[in-house]
């Protein structure tokens, strides 16, 4: 077990180095001028000397590898730098934004997991029925629908036409933080969560459906039936664990898609989460924030995959053997 965790940690470290290097190369070669995005519209007011001073202060006059190493050194000291557009430490922004995003992502993740699994079971148990065909078609349609487009659709129908939910943001515009009630917050969450989870059920439902059909036709279910087991007991003893495997690994491994979906959804609903921040950082040339969020998202997605691996080992005894042999 310890070996397993150590190996995974090693993998995470190398992944972080690779990703940070790649993002650094991409960002530092982008046409965006960091000084200009820092100063903004008043760029014409500063003299070339002032400009040079700023560049020197930021280390922009040094070679690219040197710049990268300087940044890595700072990151190791726990300093992700200061955001250019928010004028606040990057770590602070990540923390603040992530706490908003995690609510959105967490709820959608749970809902899409539970409902996807249930829909998959319903469809698979009634293979070929109208219900099955309905769930299958729904899943295929949702799997090929982009989240942002679906978000816009929901926004149009439920916010613009029906006026049931607010158009955007996480709390009513113009209200103080202390005045925002829980109901208000929830109201603002409904549409973004719906966008993420209504589409998110598709792959879980389809995979669970496929697996349950396979399990129902398996020799071990036939044997269990021959042993007199049936109904709920049969499903509980032999069905559930076997069909939950793909759902669990898929759902934990989908942290990446979840994050990607959240970026787009937050953009559509102007929801002040991490996804919105990374878009702003990219458009505004905010290199420290962009790199900081990139690193953070790598860790986040890695944790998801890691949990999938761990759970797999807990549920499937066949995985343990592989591990000790390898």
């Amino acid at each position: 077990m310890i070996k397993f965790i150590l190996r995974k940690t090693g993998k995470l470290a190398s992944l972080l180095i690779a990703i940070s290097l790649l993002s650094f190369i991409l960002v530092s070669n982008s046409p965006e001028d960091p000084v200009q995005s820092y100063i903004g519209a008043e760029i014409s007011r500063i003299s070339p000397e002032q400009r040079k001073n700023i560049e020197e202060y930021w280390g922009l006059n040094r070679s690219k590898p040197e710049q990268y190493l300087l940044w890595v050194k700072a990151v190791f000291q726990g300093n992700l730098g200061e955001s250019l557009i928010y004028r606040k430490p990057v770590s602070e922004i990540i923390l603040e934004r992530f706490s908003a995003s995690i609510v959105l992502m967490g709820i959608s993740w749970l809902l899409s997991g539970v409902f996807g699994f249930l829909l998959g079971i319903l469809a698979g148990m009634n293979e070929g029925s109208i219900l099955d065909r309905f769930i299958k078609s729904y899943s295929f349609i949702m799997a090929s629908t982009p989240a942002f487009w679906f978000g816009l659709l929901l926004l149009m129908v439920f916010a613009a036409w029906l006026n049931w939910f607010p158009v955007g943001l996480a709390s009513p515009a113009g209200s103080l933080a202390g005045e925002v009630s829980l109901i208000d917050k929830l109201k603002h969450l409904v549409l973004p969560v719906a966008t993420l989870s209504i589409g998110g059920v598709a792959s879980i439902a389809l995979h669970t459906r496929e697996k349950i059909i396979e399990v129902l036709n398996s020799e071990f279910i036939r044997f269990a039936k021959a042993k007199g087991e049936r109904g709920i007991k049969l499903f509980w003893r032999h069905g559930l664990r076997n069909i939950s495997l793909p759902a669990i690994s898929l759902h934990f491994a989908s942290f990446g898609e979840l994050f990607g979906g959240a970026v787009l959804t937050e953009q559509v609903f102007s929801y002040p989460g991490l996804g919105q921040a990374i878009v702003k950082a990219g458009l505004g040339g905010d290199v420290p924030l962009l790199l900081g969020i990139t690193l953070f998202s790598v860790v986040f997605i890695f944790v998801g995959n890691f949990m999938a691996d761990l759970l797999y080992v807990v549920i499937d005894p066949r995985m343990k053997i592989k591990q000790t042999h390898d």
Binding site: E219, F220, A226, G228, H238, N242, P317
Partner: peptide, 29 residues
């Protein structure tokens, strides 16, 4: 009657639930 008065000896190991210990699968009858 099935599992009680009539029982089956299936063909292969595939008839055993891959996620359950063998003793439990035998004890269930």
């Amino acid at each position: 009657l099935r599992g009680k008065s009539i029982s089956l000896i299936p063909q292969s190991v595939k008839a055993l639930d891959p996620l359950m210990k063998t003793s439990k699968q035998v004890q269930s009858v």
